Amino acid sequence: MAIWYEVEKNKEGIKNFLGSNCEFHDYRIDRIEYVASKDYCDVYLSFCKTEGTVIRFVGLFDIHIHGDIDYEADWMFGSELFIQDNGRFIWINDENYGDDSSHIDDYKSYATWIEADRIFFAVTDGEQNPIEIPIYHIDRNVRSLNYDTNKYDIIHQHYDLKPFEGDFKDILKPKY
């Protein structure tokens, strides 16, 4: 399996990216690294002491970091990712409105968000080093409450991820 994956620019690609990372539910932003000279930004998210995810935004357009956060307690409920009319992705560390993109301006008023042309991601170890993706990010069984029977059903989830087989040296370049 690969270490880095690229988010495909369609609804299925977004579903696979978010789903394979549990929509980033109970993740927390640890740090954000902006590299202006190469036109990218890495967002390091932790899930537990042994695992996390790094999201690499390439071809940046805009970044907003909401700093009024209690970092000891501010675990994310989830995140959203949209493709805008201009063709750019916008990732938002909140899921108050679900996949309803008509609320992007509301999100922008209070959330951390990043707008970019391309998105890559990798699972990280406890030291935030990218590692080969564990199989449970691609295939897993989850318990889901069936409200009709009031019992839990086991649902298999599979995510088709696009491995990044290129070289970041070829794409991490300034716009000028």
Rank of each mutant, 00 (worst) to 15 (best):
D62N: 13
D62H: 12
I63H: 08
H64N: 15
I65V: 12
G67A: 08
D68L: 08
I69L: 14
I69D: 12
D70P: 05
E72I: 09
A73I: 04
A73M: 11
M76W: 08
F77P: 11
F77A: 14
G78L: 04
E80L: 00
I83T: 10
I83Q: 02
Q84M: 14
N86D: 15
N86P: 01
G87C: 08
I90N: 00
I90G: 04
I92S: 06
N93Y: 11
D94K: 03
D94G: 14
D94V: 00
E95Y: 13
E95M: 13
N96V: 06
N96I: 06
Y97P: 04
G98P: 08
D99I: 13
D99N: 14
D100Q: 04
S101Y: 09
S102I: 03
H103Q: 14
H103L: 07
H103S: 00
I104E: 09
I104R: 01
I104M: 09
D105W: 02
D106E: 15
D106Y: 03
Y107K: 04
Y107V: 02
Y107R: 01
K108T: 06
K108R: 15
Y110S: 09
T112R: 09
W113L: 13
A116W: 02
R118F: 12
R118S: 15
I119W: 00
F120H: 09
F121Q: 00
A122W: 00
V123R: 13
V123C: 14
T124K: 01
T124A: 02
D125E: 07
G126Q: 05
G126C: 11
E127F: 06
Q128W: 10
N129R: 12
N129A: 10
N129E: 13
N129V: 12
I131G: 07
I131Y: 08
I131R: 05
Y136N: 14
H137Y: 11
I138W: 05
I138V: 07
D139S: 12
R140W: 06
R143C: 11
